[in-house]
Structure formats: C-alpha cells, structure tokens
Amino acid sequence: ILEEAISVVMSGKMSVSKAQSIYGIPHSTLEYKVKERLGTLK
C-alpha cells in the first residue's frame, strides 16, 4: 500500500494530502518517502 501511494504521488496523479486520506498513511511518512525517492531529503 505504501509503495502504491508513493508511486501515485510521484507520478503527480495525487497530492500527498489526498493520498494520505485514501491510503490511510500518515502525511509525514508519505512526504518523507517521496522526498527520499526524489533525492531531496535533507
């Protein structure tokens, strides 16, 4: 489920907030994982 949510957000089909409510994943977790994948994590 997490992988799917990350893919959807990264493809631009859904915002982090929308994915959070649909997949039930905490906003901070989703945002962290997306940034980690994009290489923008500081």
Score class of each variant (00 low, 15 high):
Y32N: 14
L41Q: 14
E31M: 07
K18Y: 04
I1Y: 11
A5Y: 15
T40Q: 14
K35S: 10
G24T: 03
A19M: 00
S15C: 06
A19C: 06
S21H: 10
L2I: 12
E3F: 03
K18C: 07
Y23G: 05
V34H: 05
K13W: 01
Q20S: 14
T40N: 10
T40K: 12
T29S: 10
V8S: 11
V8H: 09
I22C: 09
V8C: 11
I6E: 05
Y32G: 15
V8M: 15
T29W: 07
E36G: 03
E3G: 02
G39Y: 08
A5V: 06
L30Q: 04
E3K: 08
M10Y: 02
I22F: 14
Y32T: 15
I6R: 03
K35L: 07
P26H: 09
G12K: 07
I25W: 00
G39N: 09
L30D: 05
V8T: 11
S11V: 04
V8W: 06
Q20H: 06
K33S: 11
K33P: 04
K35M: 08
G24L: 02
S7W: 07
K13E: 12
K18M: 09
L30M: 04
K18I: 05
G12V: 00
V16M: 06
E36L: 03
M14L: 10
I1R: 14
L2K: 07
G24H: 08
K13C: 03
A19K: 00
E31K: 06
E36F: 01
K42E: 15
G24M: 06
K35R: 11
V16G: 04
S28C: 09
V34R: 04
K33D: 05
Q20I: 06
S11E: 13
S17Q: 13
K18P: 01
V8Y: 07
E4C: 00
A19Q: 01
Y32R: 15
I22T: 15
S17D: 14
S28Y: 09
S28W: 06
I25Q: 04
V34E: 05
K42R: 14
M10V: 14
H27P: 12
Y32V: 13
T29P: 04
T40R: 12
E36S: 06
G12E: 06
Y23P: 05
K33W: 07
K13Q: 11
V9Y: 01
L2G: 06
P26D: 12
R37E: 09
L38D: 13
H27W: 07
M10W: 01
E4M: 03
V8Q: 14
K35P: 09
L30R: 01
Y23Q: 03
P26S: 11
S7Q: 13
I1E: 13
E4Y: 00
S7D: 10
S11P: 01
E36A: 07
R37H: 08
E31C: 10
S15V: 02
K13L: 07
I25H: 01
V34K: 04
P26N: 10
G39V: 09
I6N: 05
H27N: 10
M10S: 04
V8L: 11
Y23N: 07
G12P: 00
A5C: 00
M10K: 06
E31Y: 11
L2V: 08
L38H: 11
L2Y: 08
S15T: 14
Y23I: 02
E4S: 06
I1M: 13
M14E: 06
S7V: 06
A19S: 04
S15Y: 00
V9D: 03
S28N: 04
K42P: 15
P26M: 01
E3C: 02
G12N: 14
S11N: 09
I6T: 06
K35D: 10
Q20E: 15
I25Y: 02
K42S: 14
S11D: 14
V34F: 02
I25T: 04
S11A: 12
K42V: 14
G12W: 00
E36T: 05
R37W: 00
S28K: 12
K18E: 15
P26C: 05
I25C: 04
I1D: 14
A19T: 04
L41V: 14
E31N: 08
L41K: 13
I1K: 15
E4L: 06
S21P: 04
G39A: 13
M10I: 10
P26A: 09
E4D: 03
E36D: 06
S21I: 09
L2A: 03
E3Q: 03
E36N: 01
I1H: 04
K42W: 08
L41S: 13
M10P: 00
L30N: 03
K18S: 09
T29A: 10
S21C: 09
K13P: 01
L30F: 02
I25V: 12
S28A: 14
K13M: 05
Y23K: 02
K35F: 10
I6Q: 02
S17H: 15
A5D: 00
A19F: 00
V9T: 03
I6F: 06
G24R: 07
Y32W: 11
V8R: 10
M14W: 02
L38M: 13
S28H: 11
L30Y: 00
V34G: 05
T40L: 11
A5R: 01
H27D: 10
P26Q: 08
R37A: 09
G39L: 11
L41D: 14
A5M: 00
Y23S: 06
E31A: 11
L41T: 14
S15F: 00
H27V: 14
L2E: 10
H27M: 14
G24K: 07
V16N: 04
G12Y: 05
V8G: 09
K35T: 09
K42M: 11
E31W: 06
V34A: 06
I22N: 08
T40A: 15
R37D: 03
V9S: 01
R37M: 02
G24Q: 08
G39F: 08
K42F: 07
V16L: 13
V34I: 13
K18H: 09
S15N: 10
M10D: 01
Q20N: 09
M10L: 13
V16H: 03
L38T: 13
G39I: 07
Y23L: 00
E31R: 06
I1G: 12
I25G: 03
Y32E: 15
L30C: 02
M10E: 07
K42Y: 11
S11F: 05
P26W: 00
S28G: 13
S21L: 10
V8F: 07
Q20W: 02
V34C: 10
V9E: 01
L38Y: 10
Y32H: 14
P26F: 01
S15W: 00
A19R: 01
V34T: 06
I6C: 02
I25N: 01
E31I: 02
S7Y: 05
V9C: 09
K13V: 06
L41M: 13
S11T: 12
I22A: 14
K33R: 11
K35G: 11
K13R: 09
K18A: 12
G39Q: 13
I25F: 03
H27Q: 14
R37G: 07
L41C: 10
Y23V: 03
I22S: 09
I25S: 03
K33N: 14
E3A: 03
Q20R: 07
L41F: 11
S21G: 12
I22R: 10
L38P: 05
L2R: 05
S17W: 09
Y23A: 05
S15H: 03
M14D: 02
E3S: 04
S15K: 03
K18L: 06
I25R: 01
S21T: 11
E3R: 02
E3V: 01
T29E: 14
S15R: 01
S7H: 06
K13Y: 06
E31P: 01
V16R: 03
E36V: 01
T29L: 13
K42N: 15
G39C: 11
I6A: 05
M14F: 05
L38Q: 14
I6K: 05
S7A: 12
L41R: 12
G24P: 04
L2M: 12
L38A: 14
A5Q: 00
G39D: 12
L41G: 15
K33G: 12
K33Q: 11
S28E: 15
S11G: 07
S21A: 15
V16C: 07
S17P: 07
G39E: 13
I6V: 12
I1S: 14
E3L: 01
A5W: 00
E4A: 04
Q20L: 03
I22K: 11
S28F: 02
S28Q: 13
K42Q: 14
S15Q: 03
K33E: 15
V16Q: 06
T29N: 15
E4F: 02
S28L: 09
M10R: 04
K35Y: 03
K35I: 04
G24W: 00
L38R: 12
I6H: 02
L30P: 03
S7N: 13
T40C: 13
L2S: 06
M10F: 00
H27S: 15
K33T: 10
M14Y: 06
G39W: 07
S21F: 08
S15I: 00
T29Y: 09
A5K: 05
T29R: 08
L38C: 11
A19L: 00
Q20F: 02
